[in-house]
Design a protein around this nucleic acid. Structure first.
Lengths: 169, 169
DNA sequence: TGCCAATCGGAACGATACGGTCCGATTAGC
DNA sequence: GCTAATCGGACCGTATCGTTCCGATTGGCA
């Protein structure tokens, strides 16, 4: 139940992209710089987002990426599925895979199906335009240690001190 | 966003365990047989469930497992967390891990936090007693290709035809 | 009372796929 | 026509997952 690092990066980068004007050409290098994601990895992430249809890509010098749709029409579920594939808690939920011997007589599958829909619904309810906005509706984040440093150094996603290279890990 | 096979097995095995009388001693071998999970793997799964406090274990001959609480007091989220660890979509949500360079200035973290709570809530809303019941509330599964083979072969978890090399039944 | 068998618990091994990196293909600009 | 910038796909090391095996523990039986 943890999304992969690639998907995590994708969310951050899409949110950063949504903060730019809709018609601007965004290179992988620019977004990598803004988000602190290493450039080669950023390229890979954006490539997947493009092949999934969330970004439009243009090759060659002066090329780059652009949101394929309005930010309000892209959901968190879309981004995750673009990078990780279909949101399916178990193999048996995904239609094409049938490696479970109990298929057809499994009692828990319908329940898991319902739970999966609920999870997917929760993710589909979050739009990219929400993700790109700074303020958060307070009732959603109460009780969290991280309340949001609303004041200082908040307009730049990636100050110079990011010291990336995934330093320790 | 896919749960591991171990967690998948755990859900199926817990549901099978809940179908037995509450005071019955259940060995890993019995539940492995009922669910079709290979015995060594079933042992590992039940060991984790026991160390997480969802099952009570007794060693030695005549030992076995037993639900530590009533099935209605165990949620799907409990089972998943017992096997996979905390439900945290990203590393930055889990309190102890701080390997993200953007920590503290990340705009999307609050939103991800809210989404994570929603996902966890959806999983916590499903109780083991629901999982162990055969019929599914129709409004939860509508629109799914799998509507539920309610008629045939539905009262046995593991019919003879499971056709797996581990079936040994 | 001593031995045996059954069962849980933890350690070790192999496989899958994830994350990261590099190089080639393509295209605008000069 | 050439150069430079950028995307796209292929490759490899590594970490985690899944599986298996063996030892520890305890009740039952002779």
């Amino acid at each position: 139940m943890r999304l992969t690092s690639l998907a995590d990066y994708a969310v951050v980068m899409m949110a950063a992209a949504a903060r730019h004007p809709a018609d601007a050409r965004l290179s992988a290098g620019l977004l990598a710089e803004e988000t602190g994601v290493p450039l080669p990895t950023a390229q890979k992430v954006m490539g997947r987002l493009a092949s999934a249809g969330l970004l439009e890509s243009a090759r060659g010098s002066g090329g780059g990426f652009r949101l394929a749709r309005a930010a309000s029409g892209i959901s968190l579920a879309d981004i995750i599925e673009a990078v990780e594939g279909p949101i399916a808690m178990t193999n048996c939920i995904e239609g094409s895979i049938h490696d479970c011997a109990l298929e057809g007589s499994c009692r828990v599958k319908p329940h898991l199906n319902a739970a999966n829909d609920a999870v997917r619904g929760a993710l589909a309810a979050v739009s990219l335009s929400q993700l790109s906005q700074s303020p958060v509706r307070p009732e959603l984040v109460e009780g969290l240690s991280f309340a949001g440093p609303r004041g200082e150094g908040f307009d730049r996603l990636s100050p110079n001190g990011v010291e990336t290279e995934a330093d320790s890990r």
